[in-house]
Simulated scan of single mutants.
Amino acid sequence: MNAALRKLEHEHNRLAKRLRHQVGRAIADFGMIEEGDRVMVCLSGGKDSYTMLDILLQLQKKAPVNFSITAVNLDQKQPGFPEHVLPQYLESIGVEYKILEQDTYSVVKRVVPEGKTMCSLCSRLRRGALYTYAEEQGFSKIALGHHRDDLVATFFLNLFFHAKISSMPPKLLSDDGKHVVIRPLTYVKEDDIATYAEQRAFPIIPCTLCGSQENLQRKQVKRMIDQWDRETPGRIDTIARALGDVRPSQLADPKLFDFLALGRHSAAPLPDVHGWLGSGAEVEADGRPAPIALQLA
Rank of each mutant, 00 (worst) to 15 (best):
T238L: 14
D226H: 05
M1F: 11
T132M: 13
K62W: 02
L260E: 14
K109M: 12
S279L: 15
A28T: 13
T104C: 11
A71P: 05
T186Y: 12
T132K: 14
R288T: 02
V188Y: 03
F30T: 01
T51V: 09
Y105P: 01
T132N: 15
P289Q: 04
R126V: 07
L15K: 08
D229S: 14
S120K: 10
D29A: 10
G145R: 09
L296C: 08
R230P: 00
P82C: 03
T104Q: 04
E135V: 13
P269G: 05
V152G: 02
L277Y: 09
Y187I: 02
V95E: 09
Q295H: 13
D245H: 07
V180E: 12
H84N: 08
K222N: 13
F259D: 01
S68D: 14
E198D: 02
S68T: 15
K116S: 07
V95D: 10
L256P: 01
G287D: 02
I33G: 02
P271C: 05
Q22C: 07
D37H: 04
Y187W: 08
M32S: 00
E96K: 13
C207E: 14
M224V: 14
A129W: 11
V273I: 15
A197V: 08
A285V: 15
Q199F: 14
D245F: 08
K98A: 01
T132D: 15
Q60P: 00
A201V: 10
P291F: 05
I69D: 03
E83R: 14
